[in-house]
C-alpha cells in the first residue's frame, strides 16, 4: 500500500464511526417534536449564534483563563511540594496520612469552604481549581521522586551531578512519567472544578451560562453549551496528548525496547 493510501485508510477508520453517529443523530432528531431533544440542525445553528458572539469574550475566555491559571498553579505547587516530600523521608511519613485524606475529599465539596475564605471572585475560583487538582500531581510526584533508580543516582553522584543539576537532569526527568500521569488526572479535575465553581454565585463563565440556559429552558442553547464543553474537553486532552508524546518519547521507547527484549 502506498503512503497516501495508508493515510487515507487510517483517516477512514478514524472518521467512519463518528460520521455514522452524527448522521444518525442528525436524521433521527430531524423531525423531533420532543422539547428536550431538539433537532441537531437546530443545535448546530444555535451553537454559532450563541458562542460566536460576545459570549466568547465574556464567558468562554474568563472560564478558560481561570482553568489555565488554576491548573498551572496546581502543577507548579504539586511538583514543588512533591519533590520536597519525595526527597525528605521524615517529612513524607509525617504528612502522608494528611495528604491521603485531602486527596480523598471530593474536590467540589471544598468549594463552599474555599468560597467562605476567598469570596466568590476569580481568585476564589482559581484557588478552588488549585486546591482540587494539586493532589494527584503532588502524590504522583512524591512516588516518582522516590523511585529514582539507585544506579542512576550513584552514577550522578560519582560524576558530581548534585543540587539543582541533579533535580533538573535526574530527578524530574526520572519522575516525569508519574508526574505526567498525575497531571492528566489533574486536568480532568480542573475542568470539572471550572464548571462547578461557576455554579455558585457567579456572573459569567461557561458553567454559569449553561445552567442559566437550563433554568430558563433555552434547550437548544443548553445543548450547544454541552457541546462546547465537550469540545473544550476534547481539545485540551488532545493538547495534553501532544505534550505527553513529546515529553515522554524516551519513556515509551524505553518501554517498547524492554518489552521487545523480554
Amino acid at each position: 500500500m502506498s503512503t497516501v493510501a495508508r493515510w487515507a485508510r487510517s483517516l477512514f477508520v478514524a472518521l467512519a464511526l463518528p460520521v455514522v453517529l452524527i448522521a444518525l443523530w442528525w436524521v433521527l432528531s430531524a423531525d423531533s417534536k420532543n422539547y428536550y431533544s431538539p433537532p441537531l440542525q437546530t443545535i448546530v445553528t444555535t451553537f454559532g449564534e450563541v458562542w460566536f458572539s460576545e459570549r466568547l469574550r465574556d464567558d468562554v475566555l474568563p472560564s478558560v483563563t481561570r482553568l489555565v491559571l488554576g491548573y498551572t498553579g496546581a502543577v507548579v505547587l504539586g511538583v514543588g511540594a512533591g519533590v520536597l516530600l519525595g526527597a525528605n523521608r521524615t517529612l513524607r511519613r509525617l504528612t502522608e496520612p494528611v495528604l491521603e485524606f485531602f486527596r480523598a475529599i471530593p474536590p467540589p465539596a471544598l468549594i463552599p469552604i474555599l468560597f467562605l475564605f476567598a469570596g466568590i471572585g476569580d481568585t476564589a475560583k482559581i484557588i478552588v481549581i488549585v486546591f482540587g487538582a494539586v493532589w494527584p500531581v503532588l502524590l504522583n510526584t512524591v512516588e516518582g521522586v522516590r523511585a529514582v533508580d539507585e544506579v542512576l543516582s550513584d552514577t550522578s553522584r560519582s560524576y558530581g551531578i548534585s543540587g539543582w543539576a541533579r533535580l533538573r537532569r535526574l530527578v524530574l526527568p526520572s519522575a516525569s512519567p508519574q508526574i505526567i500521569a498525575g497531571m492528566r488526572q489533574a486536568l480532568s479535575i480542573s475542568i470539572i472544578l471550572m464548571v462547578i465553581s461557576e455554579l455558585f454565585g457567579s456572573f459569567n463563565g461557561l458553567g454559569f451560562t449553561i445552567i442559566q440556559f437550563q433554568r430558563s429552558f433555552a434547550i437548544p442553547e443548553m445543548w450547544s453549551g454541552i457541546l462546547l464543553l465537550g469540545i473544550l474537553g476534547f481539545v485540551l486532552s488532545l493538547l495534553f496528548a501532544l505534550f505527553e508524546r513529546r515529553s515522554l518519547r524516551w519513556y515509551h521507547g524505553l518501554r517498547r525496547s524492554q518489552r521487545g527484549e523480554k
Binding site: A16, S188, V195, L199, I226, L229, G230, F234, S237
Partner: peptide, 26 residues
C-alpha cells in the same frame, strides 16, 4: 477496536459535569 478508537478518544474527555443540565431536565 480500531473503528471505535477515535470515538472513545472524543467522548472520554467530555467532562461529566457537562451533563448536569441534561440530567436535571431528564
Amino acid at each position: 477496536r480500531r473503528y471505535t478508537a477515535s470515538t472513545i478518544e472524543f467522548l472520554r474527555p467530555v467532562p461529566s459535569v457537562a451533563l448536569i443540565p441534561l440530567a436535571v431536565l431528564l
